[in-house]
């Protein structure tokens, strides 16, 4: 049913920390590995070892450069379905194959009723839906619905495969509708943000911004070289013994 639930009991989603993601693509491969035999199975690949390999993947990691020179950063940027609260990908679907679950807010595609019209992928601003050319149906991140409630696997594995695989803990999973949850607190503390908020889709997944660079210019608690101290001229090549002494004394005393 493509009518959106008025509200969902939970807002399950991911929080992705752009400060510590190292762009290793472990979440990408583990997502593929789990889901190619999970709810969305199979995730078909074409020509995997040929010149033009392509296939269906539910999670992708981009790498961007942002800013210039000293302030420039390299940012690894994982991108998967954000399980939006107002997802037009669901409302445009003519068959009801796309739907948003009332109990937890997960957005899913029913592979048995999807006709492969692709309109939902046009309606998604985030490129989160990938059509499976072999199966003729749309695939997308399931938030690992077949893991998180799965009582046949060990408790510590009942989180999305991408979260479980991340070696740096850059991905977090939880209920973003509950302000007391760990993920909500993390988002509040780190000022997590929405992608393209102007689209009005109200993504549930949040991104944590890279922290500002830590160096002499950005922070004040790093040791500074004596001759770079306030009010002092940079030392020239002809430093007097007295200057050297004061510099030495300064360093010792300020320890």
């Amino acid at each position: 049913m493509t009518m959106l639930p008025e509200k969902t009991d939970k807002k399950l989603g991911l929080v992705i920390d752009l400060d510590i993601c190292v762009g290793c693509h472990a979440c990408v491969t583990s997502c593929k590995e789990w889901n190619t035999s999970g709810y969305s199975a199979p995730l078909t690949d074409f020509n995997p070892y040929g010149a033009d390999p392509h296939g269906t993947w539910l999670n992708r990691v981009h790498t961007y450069e942002a800013g210039e020179g000293h302030d420039g950063r390299t940012v690894h940027f994982p991108r998967s379905c954000l399980h939006c609260e107002e997802p037009a990908c669901v409302t445009v679907c003519p068959t009801g194959a796309s739907y948003k679950r009332e109990e937890d807010g997960i957005v899913l595609v029913n592979p048995d009723t999807c006709i492969g019209c692709k309109l939902c992928s046009w309606a998604c601003p985030y490129g989160a839906r990938e059509y499976d050319y072999a199966e003729g149906v749309m695939k997308k991140c399931t938030l690992c619905v077949d893991r998180i409630y799965n009582e046949t696997i060990p408790k510590e594995d009942r989180i999305p495969a991408c979260v479980r695989a991340c070696p740096t803990s850059a991905r977090h999973f939880g209920d973003l509708g509950d302000p007391k949850s760990d993920v909500s607190k993390l988002v509040a503390k780190r000022e997590g943000y929405d992608l393209m908020p102007e689209m009005g889709y109200k993504p549930v997944n949040k991104y944590l911004p890279p922290r500002p660079a830590r160096d002499g210019r950005a922070t004040t608690d790093t040791p500074t070289r004596p001759n770079a101290q306030q009010g002092k001229e940079p030392s020239s090549g002809t430093t007097s013994t007295a200057d050297k002494f004061f510099a030495w004394a300064d360093t010792v005393l300020s320890r």
Partner: peptide, 24 residues
Amino acid sequence: QATGLGTIGKVRPLEPPHAQPNYV
């Protein structure tokens, strides 16, 4: 806006997420 990285500066792609064009 798409990446939310505007606070750092101009955003440009460095490494693509996949070697060949995907469905998107």
